[in-house]
Nucleic acid binder design. Structure first.
Lengths: 136, 136
DNA sequence: TATTGTTATACTCTATAACTATA
DNA sequence: TATAGTTATAGAGTATAACAATA
């Protein structure tokens, strides 16, 4: 019984990736959670802050301050939903979209550097297996 | 630019694995950090608490309470090093070894269940790639 | 003077509860 | 009455500093 736990292997790889991402995000003046929020909003606005919190696995009360900061920097907007005046639609601004794409690009290049020498088909399979492991 | 970040994929897979491990560890009355300590000690004792802390990436001051608990349960011993009376050698007891192996076995079975249907050679390759990503 | 184990302290992150305004 | 956003508070987890014993 000497093979390492899969969980430990995954945890270490994750830690490594996050560590490599840190300086790239800092260069865009983004925290990890800020980047996660921008990632989620890049494809489409969030209906409510509550749904946004749920989708990214973040607490709705902590989300407030995070959005305050991002809105203050002009990276996103909170628009009151005309259909439900309690709710706010959260959407990226053009600046936010650009900032996200810059961070994303830097991260993508870092990932390719880490996987240098690995066949494209193997990377695809790796992604498949990771997605499969994530599925509940 | 629609492919998901590798870091995000890894983070989700890790979260899933740790979530699945939780009840298995609880059944052995072990916390995640306790299991990590036992894992490290299973192969050989630690020279000092400081080196143990460094090896598992845990704070040396927090390690104290954790070891106190494990020692109280009789899962490990702290023996003063005859060569350096400041240091304490940390080693598993037979009970600790057994407890570790029980947890390890349950986790191994859970991992196999999650990877059910995946070819053995692919699992080997997955482990290789994860180890490669972890290496500094 | 430096290091090991330890304790105490401060800080960050996270979760919970309570409040308001709308529905 | 229930829900969205917000604020305040409490808790867990983590990091930092200081201390006694030994090197």
């Amino acid at each position: 019984m000497s093979e390492e736990d899969l969980g430990a292997l995954l945890a270490r790889a994750t830690r490594r990736l996050l560590k490599e991402e840190q300086p790239l995000l800092a260069a865009q003046e983004l925290s990890m959670w800020a980047y996660i929020v921008l990632s989620r909003l890049a494809s489409s606005p969030a209906e409510t802050q509550l749904s946004l919190a749920g989708e990214i696995g973040y607490d709705k009360s902590r989300l407030i301050g995070l959005l305050d900061g991002l809105e203050g920097e002009g990276l996103l907007r909170r628009e009151p939903d005309p259909a439900d005046r309690r709710a706010k639609i959260v959407a990226l601004t053009a600046l936010g979209q650009a900032r996200y794409e810059a961070a994303r690009l830097a991260i993508r290049e870092m990932e390719m550097r880490l996987l240098d020498g690995v066949e494209e088909t193997e990377i695809v399979r790796l992604r498949q297996l990771l997605a499969g492991l994530s599925a509940e």
